[in-house]
């Protein structure tokens, strides 16, 4: 049981939720992967796997373009 819990925690948050594609419109999720300044956390910090970190990177960039997230700074 304990082993399983540990395995679950060791996996990336999107893998656990079985997310296929990270949605750029879902800023609430993306915000958890970024600092208050809007910079994306490193994989070490966010715990994402390589595939999902790449998706998150693209999603944040798209969200920034659509003014859903800041390029820099919190409240713009």
């Amino acid at each position: 049981m304990k082993d399983r819990q540990f395995k679950d925690r060791a996996r990336c948050r999107f893998c656990r939720e079985k997310v296929e594609d990270i949605d750029y419109k879902d800023t609430q999720t993306l915000q958890k992967l970024a600092t208050g300044q809007g910079k994306l956390f490193s994989r070490k910090r966010s715990g994402n796997c390589a595939r999902h970190q790449r998706q998150a990177q693209l999603a944040v960039k798209r969200a920034r373009y659509m003014a859903l997230m800041p390029y820099i700074g919190g409240q713009g």
Partner: peptide
Amino acid sequence: IVRVEGGQVPEKKILGVLDT
């Protein structure tokens, strides 16, 4: 404009509010 993989319109359509 973004391609939707799988060709299915997603059921959940969200646009998160940036709330700091």
